[in-house]
Simulated scan of single mutants.
Amino acid sequence: MTTRRDCLKFSLAAAVAAAFPHGRAFAADASPLLTRAIPSSGEALPLVGLGSSATFAQVARSEDVSALRDVLQALVAGGGSVFDTAPAYGASEEVAGTIARELGLTGRVFWATKLNAVPRGGEKADPAAAREQLETSFRRLGKERLDLVQVHNLADIGTQLPLLQQYKADGRIRYVGVTSTSKPAYPRLIEVMRNEEIDFIGVDYAVDNRDVEETILPLAQERRIGVLVYVPFGRTRLWSRIGDRPLPDWAAEFDAASWAQFMIKYVAAHPAVTCVTPATSKARNMADNLGGGRGRLPDADQRRRMAEFIDALPAAD
């Protein structure tokens, strides 16, 4: 039975050691991590990165963040670079920025953060508060120029997106975008995609959560908008549905050696997807996740089989 805990003995069979200042070494698969081009620029990004909500955020709030050092080391050692965070993720942004500076990794990370200065319960952001939140992100991440900043959850697009676009015009932000992980907000997301000049969107997408395949992903291709995928495991939903079932033998046809890689490869195979950013606070899971961006990706028939397999499982409680 293939489980996430023992996946490394399969996915890292051909490994090399990568040493870092923290004193730990992490296995890095010898096969290259696949890349996708950012549509608006052609810049290539590794297909799998790291998110910092969920367990990453929980550990960032603790006194011992050594596990997060190991995660960031594993990301870079494995050929990844994209780190997705947000001020709303508690201490994640600040802790990650501090760790990266300590390890000399700041310049090797593609920093993607977010902006949402709308007060709780409000509808409008104060422009001064939005600028202060941005400047705080610059300080926390130790960068004079951030790679990507997105308006978090489509909050006050009328105020906050023009601010990001001005920062981009001034050369302080390389790419701008918007995010949403709420299906009721998809119509608004589609409207923004059609009418605003943005480089990226961030959306929820998983093998059992495929609504974005209908309109959002094709529109991203049409409008040349990059796509960051969030929660490819459905947070914990997919793990609950899979339980202790063995990985099907046919997953080897597209080089998936663990359930994490199965789930990541499903969404990564869509041509609109630029980078998949599952969150984790464990280095072994980070290395496993990166395996989802190596080797073969499933074709259209294989993706249909994957979706049918998952759909046939009982829904999580």
Score class of each variant (00 low, 15 high):
297 L>M: 11
84 D>T: 01
250 W>T: 11
210 R>M: 08
144 E>R: 12
295 G>W: 04
163 L>T: 12
310 I>R: 04
300 A>N: 08
263 M>G: 02
132 E>L: 14
97 G>Y: 06
196 E>H: 14
294 R>S: 04
143 K>D: 00
313 L>T: 09
230 Y>M: 15
77 A>V: 05
120 R>P: 09
134 L>C: 10
135 E>C: 02
143 K>S: 13
273 V>G: 04
184 P>S: 05
103 L>H: 09
296 R>C: 03
43 E>P: 03
46 P>N: 11
107 G>S: 12
53 S>F: 02
66 S>K: 11
28 A>M: 10
108 R>C: 07
131 R>K: 13
311 D>P: 00
73 Q>S: 13
304 R>K: 15
263 M>I: 03
273 V>N: 01
142 G>I: 13
195 N>Y: 07
254 F>C: 10
264 I>T: 04
300 A>M: 01
8 L>N: 14
196 E>D: 15
118 V>H: 11
166 Q>D: 04
6 D>A: 09
241 R>V: 01
113 T>A: 03
298 P>F: 10
43 E>T: 08
308 E>V: 00
305 R>K: 14
171 G>L: 07
124 K>I: 08
238 L>C: 01
246 P>H: 03
278 P>Y: 01
128 A>I: 12
307 A>G: 09
1 M>G: 14
8 L>R: 13
190 I>E: 08
278 P>N: 06
19 A>L: 02
285 N>T: 07
304 R>H: 08
107 G>R: 12
113 T>E: 07
258 S>P: 01
86 A>P: 03
219 L>M: 13
311 D>V: 00
198 I>V: 14
199 D>W: 00
122 G>T: 05
240 S>D: 09
90 G>C: 09
11 S>K: 00
80 G>M: 05
148 L>N: 07
86 A>G: 04
235 R>Y: 03
201 I>S: 06
5 R>T: 10
119 P>Y: 06
151 V>C: 01
159 T>N: 12
21 P>N: 08
263 M>Y: 02
79 G>L: 12
306 M>K: 06
233 F>T: 03
132 E>H: 08
168 K>D: 05
60 A>V: 12
22 H>S: 15
147 D>F: 06
103 L>W: 07
268 A>K: 09
115 L>C: 09
305 R>N: 05
18 A>I: 07
71 V>K: 05
277 T>N: 00
48 V>L: 11
133 Q>K: 04
109 V>P: 04
125 A>C: 11
1 M>N: 13
177 G>H: 03
37 A>Q: 14
233 F>H: 02
85 T>V: 09
116 N>Q: 07
214 E>Y: 05
177 G>P: 07
299 D>W: 01
260 A>K: 03
22 H>I: 07
106 T>G: 13
89 Y>G: 05
293 G>T: 02
231 V>I: 08
217 L>Q: 08
145 R>K: 15
172 R>S: 14
317 D>E: 10
49 G>I: 02
294 R>F: 10
149 V>S: 06
7 C>L: 00
252 A>D: 13
88 A>C: 04
91 A>Y: 06
316 A>P: 15
235 R>P: 02
309 F>W: 15
109 V>F: 11
93 E>V: 01
27 A>F: 01
